[in-house]
Amino acid sequence: MILDITPKEVKFYGRDLAITDSLNKKFGMNSSYTDMTGQVVKRKINSFDNENFINIKNGYYSFRTTDKMNWTIADETKKVENYTLQKATTKFGGRSWTAWFSKDIPFNEGPFKLRGLPGLIFELSDTGKNFMYTLVKSKELPEIYSTSDFLESNFGNKAIPINEKQKHKLIMEFYNDPFAFERNNFSKSNNDLKININGKEIHNVDELNTQTKSMQEVIRKYNNPVEIDKAMHYPIY
Rank of each mutant, 00 (worst) to 15 (best):
L135G: 00
F92L: 13
S125D: 10
T90I: 02
K78V: 04
K113C: 12
T134W: 12
N130V: 03
K113Q: 11
S153M: 06
R64W: 07
R95P: 03
S138L: 10
K87G: 08
P106Y: 10
N108T: 09
L141S: 12
G94L: 02
L151I: 15
S96F: 10
V136K: 13
E76P: 01
D67T: 04
F112I: 10
I105R: 02
G93S: 05
T147L: 02
A88T: 00
N130F: 01
I121C: 01
S146E: 10
L114G: 04
I105S: 00
S153E: 06
D149M: 08
P142D: 11
V136F: 15
L124C: 07
E81R: 13
G116Y: 05
F112P: 04
N82S: 13
S153H: 03
P118Q: 03
E140G: 14
L114Y: 02
S96W: 03
I73Q: 05
K79D: 07
P118S: 07
S125L: 11
S138A: 07
E123F: 07
P111K: 10
W97Q: 04
K68H: 13
R64I: 14
K79L: 12
K91P: 05
A99W: 08
F107L: 11
T90K: 00
A74G: 06
K103R: 15
W97P: 04
L85K: 07
T66N: 14
K78G: 01
N70V: 15
L124F: 09
F112C: 09
E143Y: 13
L85E: 06
T77D: 00
D149N: 14
Y83H: 15
G93H: 01
K137E: 06
I144L: 11
Y133A: 07
N70E: 14
S146V: 08
G119I: 13
Y145N: 11
G93D: 01
E152V: 03
N108M: 03
F92P: 03
N82V: 08
F122R: 02
E123N: 05
M132H: 15
L114T: 01
N70H: 12
G128R: 02
S138W: 02
S138M: 15
R115K: 15
I105P: 06
Q86P: 05
